[in-house]
Simulated scan of single mutants.
Amino acid sequence: MFETETREGQDRVLGEMCDIIDKANYPGWISSTVHGGVDAPGTANFIQWRSLEDLQARYAGKKFQNKTVPLFDELATTVKLLKTEAVFAQRHPSLGGVTEISPDRDDYTVIFILDVAPENQKELVDTLAKPDEWLLSVPGYRSHAYFRGLDGSFIVNYAQWDSKETYDAFHTLPDDQRPESVRKGREHARTLATGRWANTFRVAHSRSAAQV
C-alpha cells in the first residue's frame, strides 16, 4: 500500500510500479495487480506468491533493499508492505464462481485495513470472515475477501462493487436497516479493532508469470 499527497504523486508511483511489474521474473512470483486510488491518492499492489519463503527472499534481496525501497520511500508519503494469507472469499453468483481482478473490468474496489491486537485477530476474523447471504441481495455487490496479516496485527477486506454510488449507499446504510446478525457482527468488530484505514481503487495494470 502506497499513499501520496497528490494525484501527480500517485501517477509517479503507478508508473514505477507498472515498470517493475512488466519486468518481474522473481522465483515464486505468481502475479501483480496495481490499483490507482479513487477517493484519495495512493496505490495498492495486489501480489500473489507461491510461498512466504519466496516473498521473504524478494524482500531480502539487495536490489529490493538498495533500490526499490528507497525509490518508493521517496515517491510515497507512507509505504506498507502487508504480508497476508487469504482466509475467506464470497462472490455474487453472477460472477460464475470466479473472482477476477483485472484492468479489463470496471470494478469499484474498496480496501479496508483493520488493526487488531494479535490475541484478538482470530476472533475478529471469525466475526467478519463468514458467508453473508444478505450481502448477495445488496444492489451493486460483486465480491469480497478477507486476508489475515501474518504478523497477527491486522486483517484486510478487499471488496468489489459495480459503482461508487451503490457502494456509498451500502456503506452509509443505517445499522438498524441491516439484518440483526450483520448488525451484531459489526458492533462486535468495532470492539476488537484498534484502528481503521480505507480507500477506494480502480485496477490500473496487471501481469502474471503465466504471461511471460
Rank of each mutant, 00 (worst) to 15 (best):
D104E: 14
S163D: 11
H144F: 12
V87S: 04
F112H: 09
V125M: 10
E119H: 12
D126V: 15
V182Y: 11
L128A: 02
P179V: 12
E100L: 09
K184S: 15
E123P: 08
W134F: 08
L136F: 13
V182L: 10
G152K: 01
F88D: 02
V87N: 03
R142V: 05
H144T: 06
A169R: 01
L82R: 10
K83R: 11
A169P: 14
L81N: 05
I101L: 11
E85Q: 14
D175W: 04
R105C: 04
F88Q: 02
G96Y: 07
F112Y: 12
H171W: 14
V125H: 04
Y108S: 02
V125I: 09
E85M: 14
D168I: 06
Q160A: 14
K122Y: 10
R142M: 07
Q121Y: 06
E123F: 08
G152Y: 01
Q121D: 08
L82S: 10
P103E: 07
S153T: 13
T127L: 07
Q90H: 08
H92L: 07
E180I: 13
Y146P: 01
L95P: 06
G97M: 12
S137D: 12
W161I: 04
I111Q: 01
H144S: 08
P139M: 06
T127P: 02
D162A: 08
D168Q: 07
Q160V: 12
D115Y: 03
S163I: 03
S143F: 09
S94Q: 12
D104I: 01
L114Y: 09
P174Y: 02
K130S: 14
V110D: 00
H92A: 11
L81H: 04
W134V: 04
K122H: 12
V116H: 01
R148D: 01
V182I: 11
K184T: 10
E165T: 06
T84Q: 07
S102P: 01
I155A: 03
D107P: 00
P139G: 07
L128P: 00
V79P: 07
P179Q: 05
Y146E: 04
T78M: 08
N120P: 00
L81W: 03
Y141K: 00
D176T: 08
T84M: 11
P93S: 09
D176F: 13
E119T: 10
I111R: 00
V156C: 09
G97Y: 06
P131L: 15
G140W: 03
S94E: 14
I155T: 02
A86C: 14
S181W: 13
D106M: 08
E100I: 04
A159C: 05
F170M: 08
D175R: 03
D115G: 14
Y108H: 06
E180G: 09
P103K: 02
R178H: 05
L128I: 05
L128D: 00
G97E: 05
A117H: 07
